[in-house]
């Protein structure tokens, strides 16, 4: 199985998961053709599956992601940047030139797209791995599913079900702001298992009841924290964009 691992606007953190599952990868006869973070010899030829980390943020990236699509049988986007646009997509909700000039003294030298967007805004995507960072077991699940010729099954239900299965008492009821009920499961309920609220790094479930949870936060007196945590890693996810931005 020929694999490529690519990185766009991102922190490189999700790619680390490949090192964490390296023992299993060897067993599956995986041929890593392209992976700049891991090897010096790389071939951009054709791939059974390409893994893409990062959002599309510059015109060059827009071109490159299309090339990757052409060379790949399957494309898997990994992590909140590639899936939703990442933390850098907070600029999408501000004036682009204001942001640019507040960061760079000479913004004329910067070639950047006005918005940081998910990969799926540019090409068709076959698989989506959520999270900031991704869960290594889910990464292994994609690769082993392809290897075994099995359909990939990832949860679509909210984190709350994962918490309950693990027997973790609801941190929201115990008084902490938690996005678990509108966030897709799969992380292993890491934050709630340390008595912390979920801050939604896995991104929204389909049709999340955003309004109701907002009212819950208000009732708890959590202040304006709701809008702040929604404008994080997954702010530009389709479920969270304004209606005029849906496409």
């Amino acid at each position: 199985m020929k694999i490529g691992v690519f990185k766009f606007a991102s922190c490189d953190g999700c790619q680390i998961a490949f090192f964490e599952i390296s023992k299993e990868l060897i067993k599956m006869d995986v041929d890593i053709q392209y992976f700049l973070e891991a090897q010096s010899e790389n071939h951009f030829d054709h791939f059974d599956v390409s893994f893409v980390e990062g959002s599309i943020s510059t015109p060059e990236q827009e071109e490159r992601i299309k090339q990757i699509r052409e060379k790949s049988k399957k494309v898997a986007v990994i992590g909140a940047c590639a899936v939703s646009g990442g933390i850098q997509s907070v600029r999408n909700f501000m004036d682009f030139f204001d942001v640019l000039s507040s960061v760079y003294p000479s913004p004329d030298y910067i070639k950047s797209l006005e918005k940081s967007k998910p990969v799926s805004d540019y090409i068709d995507v076959d698989y989506e791995l959520r999270g900031c960072p991704i869960n290594k077991s889910q990464l292994l699940e994609i690769i082993s599913s392809l290897y075994l010729g099995k359909e990939l099954v990832l949860p679509s239900y909210p984190l709350c079900l994962e918490c309950k299965i693990k027997g973790i008492p609801c941190v929201l009821i115990l008084g902490k702001p938690c996005l678990g009920s509108i966030t897709v499961a799969g992380c292993g309920a890491i934050c709630p298992s340390f008595s912390r609220g979920c801050y939604g790094c896995f991104g929204p479930i389909k049709n999340p009841n955003i309004q109701s949870l907002k009212e819950v936060f208000e009732d708890h007196g959590f202040g304006d924290i709701y809008s702040h945590i929604l404008t994080g890693f997954n702010a530009y996810n389709r479920e969270f964009r304004g209606n005029d931005e849906k496409d």
Binding site: K27, M28, S144, L148, V153, P158, K164, S181, N209, S212
Partner: peptide
């Protein structure tokens, strides 16, 4: 419109019995 569909009620209910069957495979 109020329900978050979080599943908590069903999971903590002492009589709710629904379950799924999933397959977990070794990588080989």
């Amino acid at each position: 419109s109020k329900c978050l569909a979080c599943t908590s009620c069903t999971q903590l209910c002492p009589t709710c019995f629904c379950f799924n069957i999933v397959e977990k495979n070794s990588t080989d």
